[in-house]
Structures are given as C-alpha cells and as structure tokens.
Design a protein around this nucleic acid. Structure first.
Length: 192
DNA sequence: TAGGCGATGACCT
DNA sequence: GGTCATCGCCTAC
C-alpha cells in the first residue's frame, strides 16, 4: 500500500467521524471537530515512537485511546487502524446532545452550552472519560461507544492542527463549518 | 534516576 | 489578545 493511500485513510476516518455521536457515561456529544494523526508516518503522533503508552494505537481499530496532557487534562482519541498502522483521530470538540445536566455538573454550572465540550480536555471531561476507559471497544454497547452515522453529510472545513510543534502545517484538522463549539486555532508556542 | 517538555485550559488585561 | 500553572511520561545519562 502506498504512502498516499495511508494518508487518505486516516483523514477519511477523521471526516467520517464528524457529526457522529459519542456516548460517554450518561452524556452524548455530536463530534464537531477532530484531528487526524498518521501514526508511524506522522512526527506529531504519539505513535511515531512506539512506547508502552502508544502501544494501543498499533492494535485493534475503533478502540479508545485516552492520555493525560499537561498533567491534569485527558484527551480522547479513536484508533482507526488498521492494526500496526497506529493511525488515530483526536476528538477536539463536540455538541452535547444528551445528558446536558450531567455534563454541566462535570464541567461547572456557569459554562455555556456551546463550551461544555469545546477543546479536547473539556470534551473528555464532559463525557467523564478517564484512563479507566482506555482500550474501550467503541463499537460495543457499553457506557462508552459510538452512535450511528449521521443521515446528512455535514459541511466540513479543514486547517492546520492545534498545539503541536512538529508537522504543524499539515492541514489535518477538520471541523463542521461555522459550528459554535469549534475552538479557535492557536499555534503551539514551540512550533517553528 | 534526573531533567525536560507537552495533541491544554483558565484567567487576566 | 496574551500569559502561566502544573505533573506524568518519555528520553538520556
């Protein structure tokens, strides 16, 4: 398989996740913003160097990869496979469509609805995702799983990924055009 | 075993 | 708009 074909794969998965609903511990959110990570070919991916932490991305697709960022935040990724390719999609933002009261309890009463799941750390927080959910099968019927595909294809915009210092110019960030939950672009301080 | 750093968020002006 | 807290994980020694 060619390098080009791999690139299309992971970005197609990223686009395909927009508009899908992710259920997490009593809260459901429609995914509005994602970033694609190309695994072994992507310097910005955790899987670029194979470590015990990134090992899960080399395994079965449609598993949940959760990691801790800056010591206190969790970020949720969906492994898209195939096995050994280590491709994954980072969920950056969503619109809470079920369990909004529970989401508000987790995030804080004063947060506006559109901000409940804006930003990767906030999205994981709103859905109650932690390291306990690592390796969850998202196609299963557990507390954390993916819903069906949306009936209509959303209008998708693309741009550079946020907050990374390597390969910061690759346009592998996708979001639903004009959606209020999408976070503003901010380039990493360490990016060249 | 120690040092450096980050796929962030919140708060301040 | 910009600045900074904060700590587990990875890498090098």
């Amino acid at each position: 398989m060619s390098r080009h074909t791999r690139r299309v794969e992971v970005t197609d998965h990223a686009r395909g996740l927009l508009g899908r609903v992710l259920h997490g511990h009593g809260v459901a959110a429609r995914i509005t913003e994602v970033e694609a990570y190309g695994g072994i070919n992507d310097p910005a991916s955790h899987a670029f160097t194979r470590t015990p932490r990134s090992e899960i991305m080399y395994g079965e697709p449609w598993r949940l990869y959760v990691y801790r960022s800056y010591g206190m935040h969790f970020c949720a990724n969906i492994v898209t496979g195939p096995t050994e390719r280590a491709s994954a999609v980072l969920v950056r933002a969503g619109e809470v469509v079920e369990g909004i009261e529970l989401a508000r309890q987790r995030r804080g009463e004063r947060i506006a609805d559109a901000g409940l799941a804006r930003g990767p750390g906030n999205f994981a927080s709103a859905l109650g995702l932690t390291l306990e959910d690592l390796d969850t099968d998202l196609l299963g019927a557990g507390e954390v799983h993916l819903g069906s595909h949306p009936t209509a294809t959303p209008d998708i915009s693309e741009g550079p990924r946020v907050g990374i210092s390597k390969a910061a110019d690759v346009p592998w960030r996708f979001w639903i055009t004009g959606h209020p939950t999408v976070s503003a672009y901010r380039r990493s301080r360490r990016a060249p």
